[in-house]
Amino acid sequence: MRIGLPRALLYYWFGPAWKAFLQEIRLMPVVSRMTTKEILKQGVRVGVDEACLPVKVYLGHCLNLMSECDLLLVPRIVNLRKKEFICPKFMGLPEMVKAAVTNEYGPEGKERVLVWKSEHRSFWDAPPALPDYLRKLAGPGKIKTGLHRAKQVFREYRALLHQGYLPDEAEEILAGKNVHRREQGAAGLGVIGHPYCLYDHFLNMSLLTLLQRREYNYAVFTPELFSEEELSAEVADLAKPIFWTLGRRMLGAVRALRKKHVAGIIHLAAFACGPEALIGELIRRECQSYGLPLLQINLDEHSGEAGLLTRIEAFLDLINTHAHRREGIGCG
């Protein structure tokens, strides 16, 4: 049986582990291909008008997968850590997918959506969180070994991201392929944002690889390069802890990046992203107080490559002048 896994949202966080789990219980995972213009268009068509860009992308992936798989596995991710959340939309994601699928395929479409309810601590240790259908299909023993395997793969995957591999590279390494380490320049540049903005090559027009290319030649740092402990230690002094995991990691990353003496920070946000509206404001203030150059980019369905490139280039020029001025050369 083919089970569809949309390559969007927290696939960039959990993906390979979900895949390993399905393989272990003898099901065939079908991962949607990289986001394309068509996928995005489909998502925009079926999504609620006000939904944020990443959710629309997710819906597009779901619809795209429906014809290639028998069942669709949609996670209901409540939180990644105790007392924290990601965003309300992750908690209501299955309902949003069901509504979109019903629109396209009628009531039968809805039956093909399986919901995996994942909560803090219950990611790999709680079989009851799995959809009943899968549990009946595989039996308790297989489920247990499957989850065990998933946990293992998840650790390996996160470790690879931690070493600086991009999610698609990490996936290839896990699949046993050889991946060359990309050469990184000397000057560091921070790129922060939610994983699905940073690692979706279509949405950000391959910004990460672009910055590492020869003409720019930056060493790119993302929040994934820091360990969870490091990031939470950085923001431990906040009067009230930030209760959005990804937002907390981003603010923590800004503080950690400053210690790494990066030349500047690029913040990729998605259009209409809720938490980002407030966290972005805090990040802006934080960078201002450090005198750290910051570029905040809102990605939306209309982003044109030329516009994005121009802004990036202008920003990099600015960083260079900034650096030269600090060293006392270049501007006389």
Partner: peptide, 17 residues
């Protein structure tokens, strides 16, 4: 609902049903 309200958007997507 206010524009970009997250919980209401989730609700909005099931209201048509």
């Amino acid at each position: 609902l206010p524009f970009t309200c997250m919980p209401e958007i989730v609700a909005q997507s099931v209201l048509p049903e």
